[in-house]
């Protein structure tokens, strides 16, 4: 095994294992909080997009267009430098807060599109059928539209979550200590690029594989055969 040590000295990685663990925890925290918040904001945006009020729809459409047409890195910088300038009390906040805020704002725009498409995917006949049996709006939403919309939304939602986890790597640029930062720390202290960057890549790949497995399980289990047939 000594030839391997020249290329990838796992002993060095072992010494930094605690740093990698801290980094991974922060990555997961940032991704988790952003996921929950962006689904909430995304749902609100999706309902506005599907609603009738032009006054509300315009700003939401502008927000989504802005997020989709500018790089995440620039959005992170805008939040990182912009938030303290707009809110004086934000100056004392942790870098992590800015990172999560930027990721949330970015992800929410994509979530809005996904959730809107999910709700729209419920066939009109389903709603008409529910009306025919005398359901109220709330009953239709609760029993007919949302369960089917949710099943259609879940696979792209998992895909977006995988993207979100990958995007957290950009937080290393605004000095949040997440998983990529742990590797950069190893490289700057020991100058071992292989050990630092290959380890990071391996870590992200592991998460990706878990997400793939999850998305596969969701496709086969949750939605049932009728849903699988169409997509």
């Amino acid at each position: 095994m000594s030839w391997l040590l020249d290329y990838y000295n796992y002993n060095i990685v072992a010494q930094y294992l605690d740093r990698f663990a801290v980094g991974m925890r922060n990555t997961m925290t940032a991704a988790g909080i952003s996921l929950v918040l962006s689904v909430l904001i995304g749902t609100a945006c999706a309902l506005i997009l599907l609603g009738k009020s032009e006054l509300l729809r315009r700003p939401v459409m502008g927000y989504i267009a802005f997020i989709r047409a500018t790089p995440l890195l620039v959005q992170i910088y805008l939040v990182y430098y912009g938030l303290p300038a707009l809110l004086p009390f934000a100056k004392s906040w942790n870098d992590m807060v800015f990172g999560v805020a930027a990721l949330t704002l970015n992800s929410a725009a994509y979530m809005a599109e996904i959730i809107r498409a999910g709700i729209e995917s419920v066939p009109q006949g389903q709603i008409e059928g529910a009306k025919a049996v005398g359901m109220t709006y709330a009953q239709r939403m609760r029993h007919i539209v949302l369960p089917q919309g949710f099943a259609n939304t879940l696979p792209p939602l998992i895909g977006q979550t995988a993207v979100l986890i990958k995007d957290t790597s950009l937080l290393s640029i605004i000095t949040v200590f997440e998983f990529t930062s742990a590797g950069i720390l190893l490289n700057s202290e020991r100058v071992r690029p292989n050990e630092s960057f290959l380890t990071i890549a391996l870590g992200y790949l592991t998460i990706y594989c878990l997400m793939l497995a999850l998305s596969h399980a969701v496709k086969t289990r949750l939605a049932g055969p009728a849903w699988n047939a169409q997509g």
Binding site: K166, D167, S169, L170, S172, T180, G183, N187, P193, N194, S196, F197, L198, I200, A201, Y204, L205, I207, Y208, C209
Partner: peptide, 17 residues
């Protein structure tokens, strides 16, 4: 492999590794 890693990490791999 390319889908599973962030572009930033891929860039570091090409640039440093």
């Amino acid at each position: 492999l390319l889908r599973g890693t962030p572009f930033l990490v891929q860039l570091y791999l090409f640039y440093f590794v």
